[in-house]
Structure formats: C-alpha cells, structure tokens
C-alpha cells in the first residue's frame, strides 16, 4: 500500500505504524460524571466497519507525523489522507 502523505507525497505503508480507529483522537473528558463508562468504550470498543474506515497511522520511519487515513477495509484502497493535527484543529481542538 502507498500512503499519499500530505507533506511528503506517496510513501510505502511499511514506513508507518498503525494505531487504529481515528476516533482515538477524541479522548473522553476525565471529569465527566460517566468518565469510567466513556473510557471503557474509548479503550476497548470499536466500530470495526467493513468498508470505509478512518484510521490513525504514525510515520515512524519518516517525519513522525500522525495521519488520519481513510481506507476501504474490503479493498485496501486509500481515498483520503490528512494530518491528524489538521483534523483535530478543524474540530475545534487547540492542541
């Protein structure tokens, strides 16, 4: 697989480390009343879809940026690659 890095261009997927579902950038609020239940879901439950999947890849053998890759889990086709930083900021996160 080739991952079209937004800064570096097409890179071999073997340069990356896979983390998992991109929802992992949404860490729950530890002060919420139901924080325990939220963290259990966050830590252990996954949508695991067959089809389009937004997921985190870390460019360990490259510029060490985190990417959000949209990939089809039934064909391995990658349709979108974003910097995780941009995704988080677009959703109102400051860091």
């Amino acid at each position: 697989m080739l991952i079209n890095h937004p800064i570096l261009g097409p890179r071999d997927a073997a340069e990356f480390v896979y983390k998992g579902d991109a929802m992992l950038i949404h860490r729950p609020d530890w002060q919420a009343d139901d924080a325990l239940a939220q963290f259990t879901d966050y830590g252990y439950l996954r949508d695991n879809p067959a089809g389009l999947h937004r997921e985190l890849w870390f460019h360990e053998q490259g510029d060490r940026s985190w990417l959000v890759v949209t990939r089809n889990t039934t064909t391995h086709e990658i349709t979108k690659v974003e910097l995780a930083r941009d995704v988080a900021r677009a959703e109102g996160r400051s860091r």
Partner: peptide
C-alpha cells in the same frame, strides 16, 4: 473474523478489530 459485521446488526459494538 466477521463478528463485528454481524453483531452490528444487533446494535452491538465489540472489543474487536478485524
């Protein structure tokens, strides 16, 4: 292998990745 796909039909999310 397909547990998440099937159990999703029952509204369940599983502690599983395929």
């Amino acid at each position: 292998g397909s547990s998440s796909r099937l159990m999703e039909k029952a509204g369940m999310r599983l502690p599983i990745e395929s």
